[in-house]
Design a binder for these strands. Structure first.
Lengths: 360, 360
DNA sequence: CTGAAAGCGCTTACAG
DNA sequence: CTGAAAGCGCTTACAG
């Protein structure tokens, strides 16, 4: 492949002159620049190799990373992740940059053979390929976070984990979850079941005991359940009696299986889910079990994903698109050194539709 | 930031030993590797910088690029592009790599001040940041293609342009378009209007004359219109009388404006659109003009996007997700040198729903 | 206004 | 089994 030296030789100038022609053309005469560019064109030189220039100047690669839990395939089916990406790409800055999507499919860092640091470091993209990163919903102490830290990579975390000194874009998960549970309590429900995606990235399913959620490395779910506990105990009940069912996955179909177990085992009159995807699984289970929503069973979700409104799903709206927009804005501030940006906590809202009704 | 030299010094070994510890640990004694890794961990070394290693070894960056026409914001709203990305990320290989989305928002290369080559080369991501690229729907001779070529970058083109020696994943656009037009001809329509996104990236709107489409740099639309011409003339009509309206954008709302002009000016009984997004714009226009579809106006789209079925839109289905899957598979073959992959032409299918009916 | 030289972080053929 | 050395493609302070 033709490089800068070739162009310099062919143009009869120094390599430095060619470099200046691209990066600081004002330093050269117009004629010189024109001559160099013409030569470059003739040789099929595609411009300074970003790898070489980035290495030399410690400079920018021109790409922003988004670290996503699980595979990219999951990211492109999950409504929340899609909304987050939609928000991120609203940044006009990105039109001149590239967006690098980085999957972190190794859910459980403990399973890695290489020790905590290398598990994250193994991923090429974490090793200098991007100028900054938006991290979405990783478990506490995920090795990728250590890697980013070690590299002094400008970063913003969306939702989880909360890391001292790193800007967080999120919501008040505990309060929002309390509001979610309070809605069904106010409708008179007492036999309530809770459906969560996962408390640990170990694929475990089924009923979770207390220490499993109090020690969960997933900040969002941990805080949400704490919110449920507070609201439930404020109503005068014992939270330990409330079944918390772990789906072990993020898709509605897996949720439907877990919901079926929950319904058959505990006969709840209301199910509170930590995402709309989980709640949609409850619809599927109810259909199979021939239960009517909301007559026989109330369901409330979380997110207000695009699928929620058509289904009439009562839910807590959280502004995912705005999260993406804010995360991108803060990241660019960090990269520019414009300011040391703080955390950004966005509002949530209870959206009452037709999937919740008074207890039978 | 701590680098390999620091680790070597702290561990009391040569820099080469550290490099081997990461890339070819079998070359070292187990104890040596353990000692080096422990030292790296202690210093917070995040592993070999990808920029340094890539420069030295001419090796992989660990990222695959997708070059997208227009902004990323557009890419994340357009149903076809989303489906394409969905297909691409089905590749299991991507779980260990990163996917770099590269927007090419400068629609019209002719407008660039820097000459054809530099317009493309200006984009950092084109200059060595990715190991290979999937290119989607660029106009003929887009400078980004020259840049990729000049770099010998493994590449696959989806839909357009067709470039000698570069694998193309696409459909038989001409034949599919003929089938699309034939459907409305067979329903007895003669006053037909054609709605296309754009024939050139110059933002022009309204009625297009013959040379504008015969010389269009957009391969797909050019071939589609040629397909319309063939079907129309086979039916014994003069194609020059058929209005071809250019929307100048890709969104349904812009299409609705163009459709309104088309309906008011030519009073067609059927509108043939080059995408479902355009066809959805016709629904919007019809509603405003108080026309019933299909009683007063038949509409046929192209793509079979997710929105088509709920609307009852008759359309030509093209397998966008599969295009993405094939493009990724071919690209990885190219990168691996496994084989020189050929073009891949996928089937299309007429899907008759309720938006087309016999001519009034 | 231009050119020679140092060095960014790394890998690998080669000598020991 | 280990280490010294060259060089990947580039940028920039410095001397002319």
């Amino acid at each position: 492949m033709v490089n800068m030296k070739d162009v310099a030789r062919a143009a009869g100038v120094s390599q430095a002159a060619v470099s200046y022609a691209y990066s600081q053309p004002a330093k050269l005469s117009e004629n010189q620049v024109r001559h160099i560019m013409k030569t470059a064109d003739r040789l099929g030189y595609a411009g300074p190799n970003i790898i070489g220039s980035s290495l030399r100047s410690g400079g920018r690669t021109g790409a922003i990373g988004v670290m996503l839990m699980d595979t990219l395939q999951y990211a492109f089916t999950d409504a929340s992740t899609k909304s987050l990406l939609e928000g991120i790409v609203r940044s006009r800055r990105l039109n001149a940059l590239a967006l690098t999507l980085i999957p972190l499919p190794h859910g459980d860092p403990a399973r890695s053979q290489d020790g905590p640091r290398n598990a994250g470091a193994a991923h090429a993209a974490l090793r200098g390929l991007v100028d900054g990163a938006i991290v979405h919903s990783l478990p506490d102490n995920h090795p990728a976070l250590l890697t980013l830290r070690a590299r002094n990579m400008p970063m913003v975390i969306v939702d989880a984990p909360a890391l001292p000194g790193v800007p967080l874009v999120g919501i008040r998960d505990r309060e929002a979850a309390s509001a979610q549970l309070r809605h069904v309590l106010e409708l008179g429900h007492q036999r309530i079941g809770i459906l969560v995606e996962r408390l640990r990235p170990d694929g475990q399913r089924g009923r979770a005991n207390r220490s499993r959620w109090t020690n969960s490395p997933e900040r969002v779910v941990r805080e949400r359940i704490e919110g449920y506990r507070i609201a439930y105990e404020e109503a005068g009940y014992h939270f330990d009696a409330v079944p918390i069912i772990e789906v072990g996955a993020f898709d509605p179909h897996s949720a439907a299986q877990a919901a079926t177990e929950l319904i058959n085992g505990d006969h709840p009159t209301a199910i509170v889910a930590t995402s709309d995807a989980m709640a949609i699984g409850v619809f599927e289970a109810a259909k199979t079990l021939d239960l009517d929503i909301p007559t026989d069973l109330s369901v409330i979700g979380f997110d207000d994903a695009p699928e929620a409104a058509p289904l009439g799903l009562t839910t807590i709206r959280q502004p995912m698109v705005e999260k993406g927009e804010h995360a991108a804005a803060i990241l660019f501030d960090l990269i520019d050194g414009t300011q040391t940006s703080d955390c950004m906590i966005l509002p949530t809202e209870l959206i009452i539709r037709s999937s919740t009704a008074a207890a039978p």
